[in-house]
Design a protein around this nucleic acid. Sequence first.
DNA 1: ATAACAGTGTAATAATATAACAAATATTGT
DNA 2: ACAATATTTGTTATATTATTACACTGTTAT
Lengths: 134, 134
Amino acid sequence: MPQKQEYLSKNQQIVLSIIEKAKGPLKAYSILYNVQKKGIKAPLQVYRALEKLIEIGKIHKIESKNAFIACKNSDCEISKATAFSICNNCEHVKEIKNSKLSKYLSNFEDNSGMKYKKYNLEFFGLCRDCKLKQ
Amino acid sequence: MPQKQEYLSKNQQIVLSIIEKAKGPLKAYSILYNVQKKGIKAPLQVYRALEKLIEIGKIHKIESKNAFIACKNSDCEISKATAFSICNNCEHVKEIKNSKLSKYLSNFEDNSGMKYKKYNLEFFGLCRDCKLKQ
DNA sequence: ATAACAGTGTAATAATATAACAAATATTGT
DNA sequence: ACAATATTTGTTATATTATTACACTGTTAT
Ligand SMILES: [Zn+2]
Ligand SMILES: [Zn+2]
Ligand SMILES: [Zn+2]
Ligand SMILES: [Zn+2]
């Protein structure tokens, strides 16, 4: 099985490394502020890197937050099938790695018999810590 | 079982009626342009109405498109559990009404045993029409 | 070499969403 | 009816998120 080519350009490496170091999802402009000392000056440079990183599955976009998080699952089929849990209180976000869930959704057929190549699922609730504190 | 109070204010009615008439999801500023003749002049008036309509489950936000669509399911528990199919080609969006799916997701427990009150799922693929045309 | 392609830099601008404040209207309790 | 409370509205300004347009650089393939 040939590996997908994953050479990263300079800007892509810079952006990825910021996102990987972060504890949670980062917003595009917060990434921008964080990398200005490294020569990336404009939003577009960040957005272009983000686009590529999403395409190759290194990061995902949390749509409900307009924020970006590093992929922790080696088997996220190039970002085609993603699921996240999001805490409503502390905003903690975690990628869900659950093969039953991903099989269920990948094989899901809607009422007209249609299947889907790609999905994104976002769960909202209280994380364990926040639940205990209540 | 007491009914939830769903009296709508003037602006809320105007915005809802535009969204219900639309064939697909509408963007906030396109709603704004459509209602300017009816006295709504500023984005905030639209966003406030949208917020309320989402809260009471009359409409949903399609997060990946920043667009808003009327709810077609009478039993979307006040927008706590939503699923959509989105065509990558023609942008057609349809709310998925499938009780097996909603039960599965509402009862889903992640690896740490956590359950979630709310979720949003977006499926992407080609709709029937676009598949045939290919 | 030269065409094709992916990436870069920069400026300008578009699109989406919220903050802050003052006023009007509706709802509730007495 | 009246005051107290909560909700909705109107308006201006501003914040946040994302894309267009254009000129340029470097690498790869034939
Ligand atoms: Zn992933
Ligand atoms: Zn939390
Ligand atoms: Zn619905
Ligand atoms: Zn289609």
